[in-house]
């Protein structure tokens, strides 16, 4: 009788060990499943776009780079870059040279050259992006780094 009771408790503890280790393995699998699911490398274009030599952009001009999704502005104070993505719902905006505005085709938001909203549902002005010149004299824009407004780059 004693023996049998011992047996039962031993059995129970083995089952507990078994279930416990399977539970731990399950939790571990969840953690490493998370690691597995987060990619270690990305096949995404670099946020840094090389837009070429500054003399490509005449003074007081707005240049659209559709591939990079940015505007490169050459103002009297210097160069700056705006994202071309509307802050409303992410449509790609267009530059209207005749009206001197940036207009969003989706819901009618309008911005001026400095990215400030003139009209429409857009909640925020268009973001100013970090611009700098590299050693080879090319103008670079970092699409992932916004900068404060009126942050001009002189070449």
């Amino acid at each position: 009788m004693e023996q049998s009771k011992d047996d039962v408790t031993r059995r129970g503890s083995f089952i507990k060990i078994g279930i416990g280790s399977l539970a731990v393995a399950g939790c571990g699998a969840a953690v490493f499943g998370y690691q597995f699911l987060s990619p270690n490398v990305l096949y995404e274009p670099s946020p840094i776009a090389n837009v070429g030599k500054p003399d490509r952009f005449p003074p007081d001009s707005v240049t659209v780079d559709l591939v990079a999704g940015i505007y490169i502005m050459h103002a009297a104070e210097g160069f700056y870059a705006l994202t071309a993505t509307c802050t409303h719902l992410g449509c790609l905006t267009a530059w209207k040279p005749d009206l001197n505005i940036i207009a969003c085709p989706c819901h009618g938001s309008k911005f001026n050259r400095r990215g400030v909203k003139i009209d429409g549902p857009a909640p925020r002005p268009l973001a100013w992006l970090k611009v700098w010149v590299n050693d080879e004299g090319d103008l670079l824009v970092d699409r992932s780094t916004p900068v404060p407004q009126d942050h001009f780059v002189r070449v």
């Binding site: 089952i15 060990i17 393995a25 571990g28």
Partner: peptide
Amino acid sequence: GDSARAFGTLGVVLLLLLAIVP
């Protein structure tokens, strides 16, 4: 013969093996 003991022991072995993966 004693599936509970086998279950517990093998569970631990499996856990240890899986720990090698990371």
